[in-house]
Nucleic acid binder design. Structure first.
Lengths: 344, 344
DNA sequence: GCTTCACATTTAAATGATTAGATCAAAAAC
DNA sequence: GTTTTTGATCTAATCATTTAAATGTGAAGC
């Protein structure tokens, strides 16, 4: 059975399509007026047929889709989920739907997806990119078409004239390092699990700067590189723990990998924080529920999502707004996964 | 700057709109033929203007949106994320985009969202509902319009004639209970954290049946009801643990809440599994990384998502397919969070 | 009695694509 | 030399809506 259109309703009610449109959109007051009797006839016909206006046709006419797009790098990391959750909340409360695309950390897909979203006449777009430079042309176009566009990144090269929600763990990472050093830790490992070199730079540089400032060696043998999954975090922690001298503290690029690392620690019979301290970044919901609760640098990802969405909507309301540049920094949250260095 | 349309391209290339369409869609072979020279002129104009076909207009014409919708109850539970992830993967590989809606466990929103998705001419729809009965009318309509529609549920009342991916923990829960009883546990608590009475029924009944079969009391004082968040699982576990006599094993409705429960256990200085065993359902990625790794009944949620998506696409290809009814059951995975009952 | 006006509704253009069928010139067939 | 065919392109209908402008009617104004 085909879905009924305005024409079907008009025919059944014995009126023209315009009248149906006016009734549906409640324009019966003001310049246009429809008799109550006609109105009822139309409403009755709508009910009879189960008519619903076709969103595609409306979109074509209005140039508006009531949809915002969100591009995230990976659906397996709770951090990105939380961002999406925040965006979804805000979108829903504004009556917008969410088109979600994950690029699975693939730069080709990133480019392809931005193109696809732009063809769809999305009303606004939030990008959490990993390979920014790839899509500059597309972004340029979107900006010129006055599409609300928010880029969320970890302080990579910002594009001019667009809204940015920049996140930085730099300050929080520095705080964390000072805290660990004050606990007497002198051999602090870093698990650097990222999809791409440019990611996590804020944490890496803060880590190195802190060590340097404390006149400690910053050689690479304290850094273990890996991918972005739990399993890879677990593996990397294992490799790092089996080196000697063993680190007394472990800084992990995010909570997810830290949970993987916790397992590696537990398997070696080490106690946290008595034998080894561990700290990470993000403060995902789980961070305070694992055993022991993780010391972490908090960045409320859901709030990040909500903020980005709000930027989109504020530009949707007022397209002439000057480019916004929200800067969000992480805050150190001390829990029980960190403690004094052994023999200190 | 407005986005260029087919007309702009046609004008610049000195041809008609039809010709542009043919070139864009690569129909230059077969019944239609275009000289290479014209083709080049059109392509050049497209490039010049940065023309991209408007997806809305295409959708209106074709009645097809290249989009599938997914409705999930809650974005905070990793279980649903994993489903979404599976759907997204499959959709992307078929060249479809994903429209994601979370109802936040609100029945009104559930109804409203299904309506909204149906207005959008979504090509297919996957519903993970919690309040099925509310939307039966809408579903009926979608079926009559021959929209591929998959319902994923935990074996509640199935609607006739539609594709269903039914999940059941019944068998796995029974296995789990037998396993716990065989370890000597006689006082087994249940943390029943659901949004809605009908959810988790499979686990509850299996739990009760197993106790009854073992001639153990099935009074309600071993069951702690709560909501669906980590925090609520934590609280509920606390309440249950503080009763006496204390349970020697804890069955939790899902892994997420079990992780909350683990914290409550740790805070009371109890060891897992020496003092108390804990087991749950889902086997989210984290389940094998927490300390200790959780015994759980595995249900691969990502696979669930992929399966649902595949059902949608298979019906999209062949609308006359008989209604599919995939039944997926959970499998017990024994890890180290369960062990012999104390004093056994 | 003629104009003016308000009211209730309709007509038709516009949104941006696809595609069946029309057109028109040049080449091929007879 | 006329008809047929073929190749290349164009015309116009269609998809389902919105909305500015037009239409027709009866009542009010003078």
């Amino acid at each position: 059975m085909k879905r009924p259109t305005q024409i079907d309703v008009a025919r059944l009610a014995g009126v023209s399509r315009a009248t149906v449109s006016y009734v549906v959109n409640g324009l019966t007051e003001g310049p246009i007026s429809i008799t109550e009797e006609t109105r009822q006839r139309v409403l009755h016909a709508i009910n009879e047929l189960g008519y619903q206006p076709d969103a595609m046709a409306q979109s074509l006419r209005s140039g508006t889709t009531n949809t915002i797009g969100l591009l995230i790098p990976d659906m397996h990391n709770p951090h990105y989920w939380q961002i999406a959750s925040g965006v979804e909340q805000e979108a829903q409360s504004e009556g917008y739907d969410l088109l979600l695309i994950s690029t699975s950390l693939d730069p080709d897909r990133e480019l392809h997806s931005v193109r696809s979203l732009s063809r769809r006449r999305i009303d606004g777009l939030i990008l959490v990119l990993t390979y920014e430079n790839q899509v500059n042309d597309e972004i340029e176009q979107l900006v010129q078409r006055r599409k609300p566009l928010v880029m969320m990144n970890a302080g990579i090269g910002n594009v001019d004239g667009i809204d940015v929600v920049a996140t930085s763990f730099q300050k929080g990472a520095t705080q964390l390092m000072e805290y660990l050093l004050s606990l007497g830790h002198r051999c602090i490992g870093l698990i650097y699990g990222v999809a791409h070199d440019q990611m996590g730079w804020d944490r890496l540089t803060a880590y190195q700067a802190a060590l340097q400032k404390a006149s400690l060696p910053t050689e690479d043998n304290l850094i273990e590189y890996c991918g972005t999954t739990l399993e890879e975090g677990y593996q990397a922690a294992g490799r790092l723990l089996d080196r000697s001298p063993r680190v007394t503290a472990l800084v992990v690029i995010n909570d997810l990998l830290a949970i993987g690392a916790l397992r590696a620690i537990a398997e070696r019979g080490l106690r946290v924080p008595e034998d080894i301290s561990i700290a990470s970044f993000d403060d995902i919901a789980l961070a305070s529920y694992v055993n022991p609760p993780l010391t972490t640098v908090r960045m409320d990802a859901e709030e990040l999502g909500r903020t980005s969405a709000r930027l989109v909507f504020s530009r949707l309301v007022n397209p002439k707004l000057a480019p916004q540049n929200v800067h969000i920094t992480g805050q150190l949250v001390i829990r029980s996964s960190t403690g004094p260095a052994p023999n200190h």
